[in-house]
Amino acid sequence: MSNQVIVSRSEIDTGASSPHHAAAPEPQSPRRFTPRKGAHLALQLLSVAAFIVLWQWLSSRHISLGLITFENIPAPSDVVPAFFGLLESPKLVAHISNSLLRVFSGFVGAAALGIALGLIVGRSRWVADILMPPLEVLRPIPGVAWIPVAILAFPSSELSMIFITFMGALFPVLLNTIHGVESVDPRLIATARSLGAKPVSIFIEVILPSATPSITTGLAIGMGTAWFCLVTAEMISGEFGIGYFTWESYSLQNYADILVGMGFIGAFGMLSSVAIKHVGKALTPWLAAQEKQH
């Protein structure tokens, strides 16, 4: 699992600006279409197309490269019909809604606990000493290893699955929140205090906003890792879920369906990470203002 702390670019940025940039450029509409943006988009689409063509060629020709072989990998021409097959399946809605529920419940729980714990641990040496050692031990344990404990600890299999996505999302959120709180500029805290701020206000007015970029980075990664754990979680499931569908296809040797399931997970994971990033941007409007200066 990729639980490492990722520092967002804006935190490295000191925010120092040259005195010669007094007038900020007019805000540019992000939607405006320029030839340059068109070229970038074209290149990106071309890259995807080239990837698919290459895949089709490797699989349909059953290319074997020694270390890696495409003999048994379904080609795009097999996967597309399987994709439409799933689209038409009456189970599709149940698969998606079950998976979304499990991922989002786990994620929301992890976000709530991760942010709350991170804020406290980041501010208090004592709490850090008490809570961090056991958490550091739990951190490297992958989702698969949690399955037996999850089954034993939660009577409901639904809760066991949510627990696994929760564990997947928890650490990125927690560690990034701690990092964000610890890197608050002490000068800003001293300033707030001398302007009359009491501890609660310092928390709300200084520490929380200062840690927000880091927290949203943690949330975006956590959303990704929650999806990452979905197949693992839904191994427990008896009937529905995209992860379950993928796992079941493997047992039944429906290889094209495996790839369809993978595609769904990838696409949903990406979309929800993008959504989180947008929320993060909306929560930190000052960073966009800073970026225009550089």
């Binding site: 800003l188 906003p209 000052w286």
Partner: peptide, 27 residues
Amino acid sequence: PHPDRGLVFQHHTLFPWKKIIDNVAFG
């Protein structure tokens, strides 16, 4: 420290996430 004694340093300590008006209104 007390708001009765205002301190200004060489390098500003404005809150980056607050607009100018809200920085000034902080006290």
